[in-house]
């Protein structure tokens, strides 16, 4: 019906095809990166090849990966979530202290779910009114959460950890006789659900729409505040799960245990190639980002690079990656 349209518009087809190919190529590279990194790791430090080595790498990735769900979605709606570390710390402390007081694990999980949703509502509602910047909103919420937890347990953050949690993060752990740590299984389940929600649900597509164009999303029947609450709540629930798993690593609990996850979740999202401008990317990319950053750290440890220089190298790696694929447009191109 529209041959005339094809003739008159200056070759959109070839331009878009090449753009599309480039897009497909770059996402292929993102997913190949963890494999490539793993090969480098194998060659450079063959001792990671042991089952324990691989499993501990995967368990570390699992905790980071679960914690990064919220950051991924927050970035996808062009926001950011600085309350993830506080939420991790909250779950970590409440689990151990309440478990020591005789609460059952189920009761604690229900409590954490409720609190996570409250955190998500605070972030989502506050960042929807007056166009407040999610950076400051989540920073404030984080402070309230940490303070609230410390007050509620009166500063006594120690306690007991259920044995199965310790087992879940042990590289030698197993689930139903299958020799896989439960943390890894949980991550796989979370990943499947998150990716399915992104791709196969109404709210998942609306997350992309909101990040892409708020006005258009509203006109296309998405409810911005509801979506923000959903995104930040889901993120808080996953952060709580990560906090629970972290309790298995260390005997003692701490509200600060999540501190490292502030920047590492952002790093994983950025390395995965989800744009901070919103509306693109996805959790599948973050999985790749999580694996790459964890492998990168393992590699540096293998080369006996100390934690300080690891940090430096990570920073430089982020800069290089973003220079390659994440630069902003010049002001002239926004006219």
């Amino acid at each position: 019906m529209s041959t005339s349209a094809i003739e008159q518009t200056p070759t959109p087809t070839s331009a878009a095809t090449s753009r599309r190919r480039r897009g497909a190529l770059s996402s292929l590279l993102v997913y190949l990166a963890p494999l490539a990194m793993f090969l480098v790791l194998m060659v450079a430090t063959p001792d990671v090849l042991s089952r324990t080595g691989i499993m501990s790498l995967l368990v570390l990735s699992a905790v980071l990966g679960i914690a990064a769900v919220g950051q991924t979605w927050a970035v996808m709606i062009a926001g950011i979530d600085l309350s993830i570390p506080a939420t991790i710390g909250m779950a970590n402390v409440l689990l151990t202290t309440l478990y020591a007081k005789g609460w059952s694990f189920g009761e604690i999980v229900v409590l954490l779910l409720v609190l996570s949703i409250l955190i998500g509502m605070a972030n989502g509602v506050l960042s929807s009114i007056f166009g407040l910047h999610p950076l400051v909103v989540s920073l404030g919420v984080a402070s309230v959460v940490t303070g609230g937890v410390l007050i509620s347990v009166d500063g006594n953050t120690g306690g007991d950890v259920p044995g199965f949690i310790t087992n879940a993060v042990s590289p030698r752990g197993s689930v139903l006789g299958v020799p896989l740590p439960a943390a890894l299984v949980v991550w796989v389940l979370v990943a499947v659900v998150v990716v399915l929600v992104e791709r196969r649900t109404v709210i998942g597509r609306q997350i992309f729409a909101l990040g892409s164009n708020v006005t258009a999303a509203r006109l296309a029947l998405a409810r911005p505040m509801l979506i923000r609450v959903f995104v930040y709540s889901a993120g808080a629930i996953c952060a709580s799960a990560a906090g629970v798993l972290l309790a298995g690593f260390s005997g003692g609990a701490s509200v600060d245990i999540g501190a490292a996850y502030l920047f590492s979740t952002i790093t994983a999202v950025v390395v995965g190639g989800t744009s901070l401008l919103g509306g693109a990317g996805g959790y599948a990319r973050t999985i790749a980002g999580v694996l790459v950053t964890t492998e990168f750290t393992t590699l540096l440890i293998g080369f006996s690079v100390g934690p300080n220089m690891q940090q430096v190298m990570l920073g430089i790696a982020i800069l290089v990656l973003i220079t390659v694929y994440g630069r902003d447009r010049h002001v002239a191109h926004r006219l």
């Binding site: 950011i80 920047f263 901070l276 220089m309 430096v312 920073g315 220079t323 994440g326 630069r327 902003d328």
Partner: peptide
């Protein structure tokens, strides 16, 4: 340079330099 010249989004650029500066300082 990172933000204005290379045009890396400020949050990412200064997050990276955060890591770099903190790492060097502790080193």
């Amino acid at each position: 340079s990172l933000v204005a010249l290379i045009r890396i989004p400020p949050i990412i650029a200064t997050l990276a330099t955060y890591l770099v500066f903190a790492g060097i300082a502790t080193q």
